[in-house]
Computed example of a mutant assay.
Amino acid sequence: MDNLPTLTEGLYLDILEFARSTPHWFQRLAEVWTELGLLLFGVLFVAGWWRMRRGSADGMALALLAPLATAFGYVVSEGLKSLIDEERPCRAVAGAPASLVACPPHGDWSFPSNHSAIAGAAAVALALSWRGLVWLTAPMALLMAFSRVFVGVHYPHDVTVGLLVGGVVALIVMKSARRPVHNLVETARSSRNGAVVWCVGRGMPSHASARPEGVRHGAR
């Protein structure tokens, strides 16, 4: 682990120098994204939950699990960060250009990147709960990870490991908790408590599977 900062220090410097060469408006955009981009994942969590209120119990279970799996990804990342005291590159790399955002204080360690772990976990969780959304969530997660290096507060290996840790933890949580949460949703949907039913929705309304004979074949 001690050698990782040295191995990726050159790439960090190249990315930060590139960041410094970009237009000011682009730098500001990166600064906003790296701090507020995770909110878009939150919006997608809410949208996914809302759309499944009239969906299957399994779909609602996955929609409810998505933010929980993401939270677990963050907790694991934070646990690793507390065990591995890696100084931020904006403080440790001699001769590096100033970071675009304020360098976090000493003790707010660099490895792994919590932002990247959250983004990786959210991308995987949303992809599993909302079919086809991976084409949006994967680029969002990669952009979040890159932005942490771009603004100068993480090494490339910090964000790479963060993405992997978050994604793997989210996958494990989504797969292992799917069945029990599915059963919980089914139970909640049969509840007489209106607030509970509103939270999980009624599911897809049932329809008659067949039409009257005269309608099916046409009355003459």
Results as ranks from 00 to 15, higher is better:
residue 68 L to F: 15
residue 52 M to K: 11
residue 35 E to C: 13
residue 184 L to F: 13
residue 46 V to W: 10
residue 211 R to D: 14
residue 53 R to N: 04
residue 157 H to Y: 02
residue 150 F to E: 10
residue 2 D to F: 06
residue 117 A to L: 10
residue 119 A to K: 02
residue 1 M to T: 12
residue 62 L to Q: 06
residue 99 S to D: 05
residue 127 A to G: 08
residue 86 E to V: 04
residue 185 V to H: 02
residue 1 M to Q: 13
residue 3 N to A: 14
residue 110 S to H: 05
residue 130 W to D: 05
residue 142 L to H: 07
residue 145 A to H: 02
residue 182 H to N: 11
residue 48 G to I: 06
residue 59 G to F: 07
residue 5 P to W: 01
residue 36 L to G: 11
residue 132 G to Q: 02
residue 195 A to Q: 12
residue 124 V to N: 02
residue 187 T to L: 11
residue 16 L to I: 12
residue 168 V to W: 09
residue 106 H to A: 12
residue 6 T to L: 09
residue 61 A to C: 04
residue 213 E to S: 12
residue 19 A to S: 15
residue 43 V to R: 08
residue 73 G to P: 05
residue 129 S to V: 10
residue 165 V to K: 01
residue 189 R to S: 00
residue 20 R to D: 14
residue 4 L to G: 00
residue 71 A to M: 10
residue 170 A to L: 12
residue 121 A to T: 01
residue 92 A to I: 10
residue 8 T to A: 00
residue 109 W to I: 03
residue 85 D to C: 10
residue 214 G to F: 14
residue 138 A to W: 11
residue 36 L to A: 13
residue 219 A to V: 08
residue 54 R to Q: 08
residue 139 P to T: 01
residue 217 H to S: 14
residue 170 A to N: 04
residue 104 P to M: 01
residue 155 Y to L: 03
residue 214 G to Q: 15
residue 6 T to F: 05
residue 130 W to H: 07
residue 136 L to R: 02
residue 145 A to G: 03
residue 149 V to W: 00
residue 166 G to S: 01
residue 164 L to W: 04
residue 43 V to C: 09
residue 93 V to C: 00
residue 59 G to N: 03
residue 193 N to G: 06
residue 161 V to I: 13
residue 163 L to Q: 06
residue 118 I to Q: 13
residue 139 P to W: 04
residue 75 V to W: 02
residue 114 N to W: 07
residue 83 L to Q: 14
residue 179 R to A: 10
residue 169 V to Y: 01
residue 42 G to H: 09
residue 161 V to P: 11
residue 120 G to E: 11
residue 118 I to S: 12
residue 24 H to S: 15
residue 26 F to N: 04
residue 78 E to A: 12
residue 73 G to M: 06
residue 50 W to P: 05
residue 101 V to W: 04
residue 132 G to Y: 03
residue 217 H to R: 15
residue 60 M to S: 05
residue 131 R to V: 11
residue 41 F to Y: 15
